[in-house]
Amino acid sequence: MTTRAGVYEADEFAPGRPSAAAAAHAAAEARRHQVLMALRVLVGVVFLAFWEFASDRLIDAFFVSSPVAVGGRLWQWLSDGTLFYHLSFTLTATGLGFLLGSLIGFTIGFALGRSNDLATIFDPYITAIYCLPKIALAPLFIMWFGIGIESKVAVSAVIVFFLVFLNTYAGVRDVNPVHIHATRIMGAGEWQLLRKVILPSAAAWVFTGLKVSVPYALIGAVVGEFMSSNRGVGFLIAQSSAMFDTASTFAGLVVLAVVGAAINGGLKRLERHVLRWRA
């Protein structure tokens, strides 16, 4: 704006210019985020320090090992290639099971969500299969597909299928009918309706199903390796526990935890990118 002296002063609320209050709020949020990240690291450091202190002082190291011993075993696995060899097998089974289960779950969930007739026909059968303990299917898959990677993929895919299917089905059903009718009134075809209304509305549900299914995909692959395998992180854990090697058992669990967190973090970033329009 212009003052009486004729000097131009920038308007605090001019379009495209952040106000002083907004800038202060952003700075406060940045500081808060830094504090929370520091606290997150501190919690991990305190936990590891207490674990190291408690080992052989409060609890027998045979049962809990120690961070130093676990770290040493991980370094040994990294040095001799053991970790990469077994982890590649587990990640391959997890990835294939996750992709296969997600694709089938999304397709069937979307089809049944859009068709009341199909939902009425198949609902009791899907519900009945869903009620089965998925892990109980592992021996059957081993009989069908053998002890190779195929049986691990099958267990992982079945678990992921139901999580993605249920979320996709609920997301498609949850679309506001007012939006659908309004889009049709404006002359949109079926493809435009799917692309502009249904898929964006159901995307949040679908990503929730994907994020929830990631650890279960890993669980399915590892359980298959527990039951019949000579490769994979699950095999390492089973072998270590059978030999009462606590450090190796914890090392395998740490690897699985890190892998699951990394995959979940990648999905969160993808979700923020795909659903950026919601901001």
Rank of each mutant, 00 (worst) to 15 (best):
A204T: 14
G232F: 01
I129S: 11
T120R: 12
V153S: 01
G209Y: 10
L199H: 12
F110N: 04
A111I: 06
F165N: 01
R276M: 06
L236D: 02
L99T: 10
D60S: 15
I104P: 03
A21V: 06
R276V: 08
F47W: 15
V155M: 13
I147K: 06
V153M: 01
C131K: 04
G148F: 03
F145I: 01
F89W: 13
I219T: 06
D123A: 13
A23N: 03
G72R: 15
I129G: 02
L210S: 08
T90H: 00
D80I: 10
Y130M: 08
S213Q: 09
G109D: 09
W205Y: 13
L39I: 09
A24C: 04
G187W: 05
G44V: 11
T82W: 07
I185T: 15
Y130E: 11
F13D: 10
W277L: 08
A128S: 10
F244D: 02
P124W: 05
T183M: 13
M1I: 09
L39H: 07
F13A: 13
K134M: 02
M37K: 12
F47R: 05
N264P: 04
M37E: 02
A24V: 04
L42C: 11
E12T: 01
E29M: 10
L218W: 01
D11L: 14
F165E: 02
A247V: 06
L118T: 04
H86P: 04
L100P: 01
T127R: 09
H273Q: 13
A157R: 03
A28Q: 12
W75C: 11
A221D: 00
F161A: 04
F244A: 12
T107M: 14
G220E: 00
V258M: 12
N230P: 03
L236P: 03
H25K: 12
R73V: 15
V274I: 15
V7P: 03
I180A: 07
R195T: 15
E225L: 03
S115N: 13
S201L: 07
F50Y: 13
S102I: 09
V197A: 13
W205K: 05
Q192Y: 00
E150Y: 03
L193E: 12
E271V: 09
D60I: 06
G209W: 09
A128M: 14
T94D: 01
R32M: 06
A154Q: 05
S79A: 15
F47P: 06
E190L: 08
A221Q: 00
F244K: 05
L103W: 14
V172S: 02
S55N: 14
Q239H: 08
A157M: 07
V68F: 13
M1A: 14
T90W: 00
E150M: 11
K152L: 01
H179S: 15
D80V: 14
N264I: 05
A202E: 04
D174V: 07
I159Q: 02
W191E: 10
A27I: 04
S240G: 10
A28C: 04
S213E: 05
L87Y: 01
T94F: 01
R17C: 02
I108S: 08
L194C: 12
G265T: 11
T2C: 06
R114D: 05
T107L: 15
I142E: 00
P15F: 11
V153G: 00
G146T: 07
D123V: 08
E150C: 03
V70A: 12
S79M: 14
P133I: 08
A26W: 06
G146C: 09
F106S: 10
E190D: 14
A138I: 02
P15V: 12
I159D: 01
R114M: 14
L199G: 06
Y85Q: 15
